[in-house]
Design a protein around this nucleic acid. Structure first.
Length: 445
RNA sequence: UCGACAGUAGCUCAAUGGUGGAGCAUUCGGCUGUUAACCGAAGGGUUGCAGGUUCAAGUCCUGCCUGUCGAGCCA
């Protein structure tokens, strides 16, 4: 008898099939039982009638516990009441392993309880849907990059120094060479790749040791960083919107069932079409001033509100929300005050106080999902900047070599995979966007 | 790191300073179309830890621990 997966069950109506999976839940009604069986691809309701199955099968079903692994055989039928829903009229059961009492019931649970059992929580329909969408996002990223001539360029995880010199890094002993740090970005290495291969991208884990306890931060997250030679900041933004449109459309096309499981309002995602709004930092500040959103600065006695919003300050959560709320697409904020941005960003030739950076803010208040820029390609400027930021000059010699030997205008950006998943899936918290999230107060399971 | 809030049965939550309860889960019984099924019964507690106020503390006070949310940092 053919073994089938539940998400393909509609192809087998009136056929006898085998399903290999686990018992998700079971309801009984005297001489009838309704086991819900999951196999990783979906859930199907089985029907077991005492009058039509052997007594041993009926007894075996009676003793089944939640999450017991089972193989069932039966005929696929249409649900008597529901459209496009299928059932399995079960006539045989093989118990592979009878599960011990299962801690995660179909009822409500708290976050801590579930996170302590993340390895089991992953089996629930909601988590399965999220991880399937994560898979589609990453696969579509790889496909987009491959189709468009980008070369996968894996950056190292052990690095000798801070890439951007700002955030706190995880340190570890590295043989006789002193401290090594876990990478917070593959960008600098991707720049070397871009000058070798033209267009490259990295896709791998990155690490930030900041004690950030918010719904948008994890300490270990996956980042995709394309880097392109002969791209300026505007080429970079062209790529960002084309890329984001592709990924979102792929999820809409291939993950309709999963989005429905999550209750996602897909009409919001369907609006993610080119072109996206591009506003300069100056224009964003104008929006904040018009809406009278102040800068909030901490003082010894508490906090003070500064209005109008002063030019040169970075945006916080309330500012991002105010900027995004009038748009239904990702918003690209570009050309930032250089003071607020990293050392490697190229200055605007028309205004040295401006850095050619771009932040992409997801709609619906999900915040920053992409940070990118045109990179500084002048050796003298970059040397000056590294000294100003008091970065270890020797460690950056190889990076400066990229400006010594055939420097070109080049650009790139970093996309936070989990933030993308959080947005697409409309999650409350980033911790659901990765199988085993790492946060400052959690390393297990 | 700072601020706010919370911690009571395996889980989710109630309980005016005055004898700690319910739903679910578990066990047993009932039910031939259930949908987080339902109905009946049973078992299940050092109220996060330490101290204090009080005739009396789950409840008020202090400290600690743990967690959640927010801020900063950013993807």
């Amino acid at each position: 008898m053919q073994r089938v997966y539940i998400n393909k069950i509609s192809d087998f109506v009136d056929k006898d099939v085998t399903i290999k999976g686990w018992l998700y839940n079971i309801r009984s009604s005297g001489k009838l039982m309704f086991p819900e069986i999951r196999d990783g691809s979906g859930i199907i309701q089985g029907v077991v009638a005492k009058s039509t199955v052997p007594e041993s099968v009926w007894e075996d079903f009676s003793k089944l516990t939640q999450e017991s692994s089972i193989i069932v055989k039966g005929k696929v039928s249409k649900h008597p009441k529901k459209e496009n829903v299928f059932e399995l009229q079960i006539n045989d059961l093989e118990i592979i392993s009878l599960a011990e009492p299962y801690p995660i019931t179909p009822k409500e649970h708290g976050v801590e309880f579930l996170m302590d059992r993340r390895h089991l929580w992953l089996r629930t329909p909601r988590q399965v849907a999220i991880l399937r969408i994560r898979n589609e996002i990453i696969q579509s990223i790889r496909d987009y990059m491959y189709i468009n001539g980008f070369i996968l360029f894996d950056a190292p995880i052990f690095t000798p120094n801070a890439c951007e010199g700002t955030t706190t890094l995880f340190a570890t002993e590295y043989f006789d060479l002193g401290k090594a740090y876990l990478s917070q970005s593959g960008q600098l290495y991707a720049e070397a790749g871009a000058l070798a291969l033209g267009k490259v991208y990295t896709l791998g884990p990155t690490f930030r040791a900041e004690n950030s306890m918010t719904r948008k931060h994890i300490t270990e997250f996956w980042m995709m960083e394309p880097e392109m030679a002969y791209y300026d900041i505007d080429d970079n933004m062209d790529l960002i919107e084309d890329f984001l449109e592709y990924v979102v459309s792929r999820v809409l096309k291939n993950c309709a069932v999963e989005l429905q499981t999550l209750g996602r309002d897909v009409s919001k995602l369907e609006k993610v079409k080119k072109p996206f709004p591009r506003i300069t930092y100056d224009e964003a500040v104008e929006i904040l001033r018009k809406k009278d959103i102040p800068l909030i600065r901490k003082t010894e006695s508490g906090e003070e509100q500064i209005r109008p919003f002063p030019w040169g300050e970075d945006f916080g959560a309330p500012h991002e929300e105010a900027i995004v709320e009038d748009f239904e697409k990702p918003v690209m904020v570009h050309r930032w005050p250089a003071e607020a941005k990293s050392f490697y960003m190229k200055r605007d030739p028309k205004n040295p106080d401006i850095a050619l950076g771009v932040d992409v803010l997801a709609p619906e208040g999900f915040g920053e999902i992409i940070g990118g820029s045109q990179r500084e390609d002048s050796l003298a400027e970059l040397e000056k900047r590294i000294k100003e930021h008091k970065l270890p000059f020797d460690d950056f010699q190889w990076y400066l070599d990229l400006r010594r030997f055939g420097s070109v205008p080049h650009s790139g950006f970093g996309l936070g995979i989990e933030r993308m998943v959080t947005w697409i899936c409309n999650l409350e918290h980033i911790r659901e966007a990765i199988p085993f999230p790492r946060r400052p107060n959690r390393i297990k399971p």
